[in-house]
Simulated assay, not measured.
Amino acid sequence: MSRRRLFDAGTLRHWPLPSLGPGCDKESRGRVLVIAGSREIPGAALLSAQAALRAGAGKVRVATAQSVAMHVAVAMPELQVIGLPETREGGFDLAGLSLLDKALEQADVVLVGPGMQDEEAAIAFAQALRRRRPELPAIFDAAAMGAASRDPLPGPPVLVTPHAGEMAHLNGQTKASVLDDAEGAASEAARWWNSIVALKGSTTVIAEPHGDLWVHEAHNPGLATAGSGDVLAGLIAGFAARSASLVQAAAWGVAVHARAGERLAGRMGGMGFLASELLAEVPALVQGLAAAERGEAVRINRPTDAAPAIPVRRSAG
């Protein structure tokens, strides 16, 4: 029987991330491989990679366009960066797959798509990656999402992260029809694509292939800004690296992303903050949620820290 659950950051206190323990090291916190960026949008790789680290991942490798790889490495010295050969249109050439064998072997989760150009090349690259490591937890974002919607993929369901416009592009609907029935659109896509679908918006719906739904409401227009989706994708990857399932990682990513936006809106106003400014809010939020689950009194001196939990609800079906 499928279930429909409402959740927010408060709910996560009762759905804690897998425990790392006081003696954990960067290896036990997990490795993320981020395949992202392009010569026109190199910042997407940086936003996703930093978000994964802020979520608690131990190590992050970035594979990005050869033309900007050195710039990405200099901009964020915490990363190991791999430069990939590019197509004429600015995508990643399949010839670069062999450069990722070691990184794929060592990764605990792979994120593909933020800031990638040349949709056809991105889809081909994501499909080839999945065939190479079908068991590896995978998140397909932006231009790479068509890899899940076009052809059946081997291995367990991947997670795709469209907003309404991207969903309309992927399934041939209008954006208005997706917005009119977000739960139905996400559920149908999850079933047909055999994927976990996180349909983003003021109401975000996480749909599983077998019918379960997770629904989050956050009316924060400030999050509708360039790079915000890259941050969310990176957060999900970081939580997944810490051994959360893709569904739990998506729920944590969505709720923490929304709460970070609420905090910035409380200090700076409802609109005008940058996606990169969300990142500094994440560690204290995650720590606060973990401490609350353990029953510890932790004071985080930020506005809107005491938003109430939304109860878990079952549908009549």
Rank of each mutant, 00 (worst) to 15 (best):
E166L: 09
A237K: 06
R302M: 12
R3L: 10
Q106R: 08
A126E: 04
D230P: 10
E296M: 15
V254Y: 12
L223H: 09
T174K: 06
R54S: 03
L6V: 05
A57V: 15
S38G: 11
I41E: 09
T87I: 11
G30V: 06
A143S: 14
E188G: 14
T204V: 12
F92R: 04
T203E: 15
V109S: 00
A316T: 15
S202C: 13
L12C: 03
L12E: 00
A95Q: 09
A251T: 12
N171Q: 05
G201P: 03
D212K: 07
H216R: 02
A280Y: 02
L97W: 00
S177E: 15
D151H: 08
R242C: 05
A233D: 11
G23S: 11
P156D: 01
T161V: 14
H257R: 05
L129A: 10
P134K: 06
R133K: 11
V72Q: 08
G266T: 04
T204C: 12
G10E: 06
G184R: 00
R263M: 10
W252E: 07
L159R: 02
V60E: 13
P154L: 00
A240L: 10
A69F: 12
V312C: 09
Q80R: 12
S276C: 03
I310V: 15
E296A: 12
A306C: 11
A182H: 04
L153C: 05
S245P: 11
L100A: 12
A297H: 12
M271P: 00
G266N: 04
C24R: 01
A52F: 01
G269H: 03
R299C: 13
V68D: 06
S149C: 15
C24F: 01
G30F: 06
G201N: 03
A138Q: 13
D180W: 05
I139V: 14
V205N: 09
L79N: 05
M145Y: 02
A142R: 01
T64G: 12
R267Y: 01
T161W: 03
T64C: 12
A57K: 02
R263W: 07
P18C: 02
R5Y: 08
A148R: 01
A240R: 08
R259A: 14
G261S: 01
A9S: 11
L97P: 04
K175M: 15
G91D: 06
P221D: 02
K175E: 14
L289N: 03
L104I: 09
L289M: 13
D108P: 01
D93Y: 03
G211A: 09
R39S: 15
P77N: 08
G270R: 13
S48E: 08
E27M: 03
H216S: 14
V178L: 07
A189M: 15
E89W: 04
R132C: 07
L97Y: 00
A44P: 12
S98Y: 00
G37T: 10
S149L: 03
S195E: 11
K102A: 14
R314K: 05
E296Y: 08
S187V: 07
W192I: 13
L53V: 07
P18R: 00
A168S: 11
I206N: 05
H71S: 15
V312I: 13
K200V: 10
G90H: 05
I82H: 03
N194R: 14
I35R: 00
S48P: 09
E40T: 14
A207F: 05
A284F: 06
T161S: 06
